[in-house]
């Protein structure tokens, strides 16, 4: 995803001389192509994320469209207040790019596990939080970011993210992209959890259960008509997010259900427990947290078998 992001930026920068890429000394083998082609619109500010957020604020004030790039926790959490008082307070189109969302850096340890970024930045008024599911959707999101004027938090994976079948790079603000139609349950996923959710739907199919899968890359501050419309058509929804349950996708969906009085039961799959603990590959961490496809399918089946959902008319 990070390669798709930088490549898309590079292509757009040929036509748009406002695009500016800053990194806090990360992105080896990723950012060089942009830096080589646009040396005046690239800065490695050194290991100084707070300063990078401030510099981006100043650059945006004189008309640039800065993208600030670092590992998700360093880009989003370390300079949370700088993002708040800079791009958010001044309403400037700075895009904060968080690399390695969720457990992408699984074995690197808890300091590198980005679990609170989506919820934390979604709390900022006027901030657009978006976690694309695969490289093609990442490209579409980058283009969409440049067609609007709000600050954005763009959480992407690391490398080697596979394409999500059926998504075909589709993205629109405020609405889920449906990649599989079913009747018993809706899996609603953000970021790289889309692939796990799709695999879980296939596992359910083998058990005779029919699942829809939606990709909610954009996590808006409030529920949207497009989201409510999809929820209305399902008796049960299982939200899947690679992060804590506070403030992220499950919070959004729970709020939508409660506000609209929807007859939709909510299952929340996300990260629980303390930060400290054994680490390992991303797949290992997903399994530990019950976020792998098999766990998601079991969670869904247990609820559906326990009390079958009322099917939508």
């Amino acid at each position: 995803m990070r390669n798709a992001l930088v490549d898309q930026l590079r292509q757009l920068a040929r036509e748009d001389d406002r695009i500016f890429l800053l990194t806090a000394d990360l992105g080896w083998s990723v950012v060089e192509s942009f830096a080589g082609e646009f040396p005046d619109r690239f800065l490695n500010v050194g290991v100084a994320e707070q300063n990078m957020a401030g510099i981006a604020t100043g650059l945006a004030m004189v008309g640039y469209r800065p993208f600030i790039y670092s590992i998700a926790n360093f880009a989003a959490l370390r300079c949370f207040e700088q993002i708040r008082n800079g791009p958010v307070l001044h309403r400037l189109p700075v895009c904060v790019v968080g690399i390695g969302g969720g457990y992408a850096y699984g074995a690197a340890g808890p300091s590198h596990h980005a679990l609170e970024d989506l919820g934390a930045l979604r709390a900022l008024p006027g901030m657009r939080v978006v976690a694309p599911a695969d490289p093609a959707q990442t490209r579409t999101v980058v283009s969409a970011v440049l067609r609007q004027e709000d600050p954005v938090y763009l959480r992407v994976g690391k490398g080697g993210n596979a394409a999500v079948p059926g998504l075909d790079g589709r993205f629109a603000w405020n609405e889920p992209a449906i990649i599989r139609e079913g009747t018993d349950i809706l899996f609603l996923a953000t970021g790289a959890m889309a692939l796990e959710s799709l695999a879980a739907a296939e596992l359910l199919a083998a058990r005779g259960l029919s699942a829809s899968v939606g990709v909610m890359a954009h996590l808006p501050a409030e529920s949207t008509p497009e989201l409510v419309d999809v929820l209305r058509r399902h008796g049960t929804v299982l939200t899947a997010e690679e992060g804590t349950l506070t403030g992220g996708l499950s919070s959004l969906v729970g709020q939508a259900i409660a506000r609209e009085g929807l007859a939709c039961r909510l299952l929340c799959a996300g990260v629980t427990g303390r930060l400290a603990g054994p680490v390992g590959s991303r797949n290992h961490m997903l399994q530990r947290q019950g976020l792998d496809a098999a766990s998601l399918a079991s969670m869904a089946a247990a609820r559906l078998n326990q009390a079958p959902a009322a099917r939508a008319a």
């Binding site: 401030g54 604020t57 945006a60 004189v62 700088q82 008082n85 307070l89």
Partner: peptide, 26 residues
């Protein structure tokens, strides 16, 4: 041009302004 109040953040914004203005040949 710049809202402030949280100490320590202004000079970074000033750096961004200065860098951007110089690139714009201002």
């Amino acid at each position: 041009d710049v809202a402030t109040g949280s100490l320590g953040q202004g000079l970074s914004v000033a750096c961004g302004l200065a860098h951007g203005l110089r690139l714009r040949r201002s």
